[in-house]
């Protein structure tokens, strides 16, 4: 490149030959030479959300915790090799001995530290969390319990999301009398404590998984409907909706194709906060005795089982409690992280 000198008025005239452009100055840049601004690059909305989500420690930690528990819940029983309801027993001199109330044991670690082997019929068995009073492996049961708790939470919350979102969007979109009626209905349901709903359900439904699921279905959608209604109120007067209507879009299209994708962020956050509530409620119901029925198990029923034997085997209650606490922690962290990532404040940018 040439360097042009600016002649100063009061300086002595400098004689320099005029610059004669050469052919090289008129060559097109190769693609390789064109650089893109990587420091201030524009990025898609969801990519930005991902970046902001993983930039913070807590949400990442929460995600890792939840993933580890999901993997354990799916593959834990395969590792241990016992069945969920299998009562482990051994044949000693023609007698059946069940492995009841055995403390946590891993034979090779025991051998490593003491140099000896266990001197009972289950010397070669591995029980990471021990066994319960009946003789079932607690590790397998904890994994299965976590699986059932997670399954109930996910299924119900997703159905709740669909119900709540549709309800809130429709209520917000039509406004007027429809909105007022629908909101009164929500208020009335909202002012019935969940416990009352569960107990009335318990009068005619058999105890078990379905009772928990229906109870959750009846209560959890309200939060979602409130959020999506608020989003709809915010969205519906914007120009894009007006444009869509001008182009002849029907109500259904505006509600579900135009507005819904824009409300998905807050809804996902709400889902992340609802899942721990669902797990908590399930644990509570199972603890009280109207949830999961034996021999199936969930986190809550395992805690109840541990509580019943706390004076004899105090460690039995610990694994399900830790799983429950970690699940709550993980989902709360993810929820917090998502909320911040979806609606970034200026400080985070």
């Amino acid at each position: 490149m040439s360097k042009k000198r600016i002649p100063f008025l009061n300086a002595a005239p400098v004689t320099e030959p005029a610059y004669i452009p050469t052919d090289e100055d008129f060559v097109f840049k190769e693609n390789n030479d064109i650089s893109i601004d990587k420091n201030f690059a524009s990025q898609g909305y969801w990519k930005g959300v991902l970046v902001r989500f993983f930039k913070k420690k807590r949400p990442t930690l929460g995600l890792i915790i939840v993933l580890v528990i999901i993997i354990l819940a799916l593959f834990g029983p395969l590792i241990s090799g016992y069945g969920n309801t299998e009562i482990i027993s051994a044949n000693v001199d023609g007698r059946q001995v069940t492995a009841s109330s055995i403390s946590p044991r891993v034979p090779w670690i025991h051998k490593l530290f003491t140099g000896e082997e266990y001197d009972d019929p289950f010397a070669d068995h591995t029980f990471i969390f021990g066994t319960d009073t009946v003789g079932r492996d607690l590790f397998t049961r904890t994994c299965n319990g976590a699986r059932i708790s997670l399954l109930i939470a996910f299924v119900t919350i997703i159905i709740d999301m669909i119900i709540g979102m549709s309800y809130g969007l429709i209520s917000g979109y039509f406004g007027g009398v429809a909105d007022a009626t629908m909101q009164r209905f929500v208020e009335i349901i909202y002012s019935v404590p969940r416990l009352v709903i569960v107990s009335v359900l318990a009068t005619f439904m058999p105890k078990g998984v379905w009772l928990v699921i229906v109870a959750l279905l009846l209560t959890e959608w309200i939060g979602m409907s409130k959020i999506s209604r608020a989003e709809m109120m915010r969205m519906k007067d914007q120009e894009c909706i007006l444009a869509s209507r001008t182009l002849g879009a029907k109500n259904g299209r505006i509600i579900f194709r135009d507005v819904l994708p824009n409300t998905i962020g807050p809804i996902i956050t709400q889902v992340m906060f609802s899942i721990p509530t669902a797990i908590f409620t399930e644990a509570f119901l199972s603890f009280v005795g109207v949830g999961i029925v034996l021999p199936q198990c969930s986190v809550g029923s395992l805690i109840e089982d541990g509580f019943n034997n706390i004076t004899t085997i105090p460690y039995q209650i610990i694994p399900p409690i830790i799983i429950l606490a970690l699940l709550m922690l993980g989902f709360n962290f993810i929820g917090d992280g998502l909320r911040e990532a979806l609606s970034p404040s200026i400080e985070d940018m």
């Binding site: 606490a325 709550m328 709360n332």
Partner: peptide, 14 residues
């Protein structure tokens, strides 16, 4: 506050 939110009250009671 994290512990208080994550662990149910009945566990503390136990």
């Amino acid at each position: 506050s994290i512990i208080g939110v994550c662990v149910p009250s009945y566990v503390f009671m136990i």
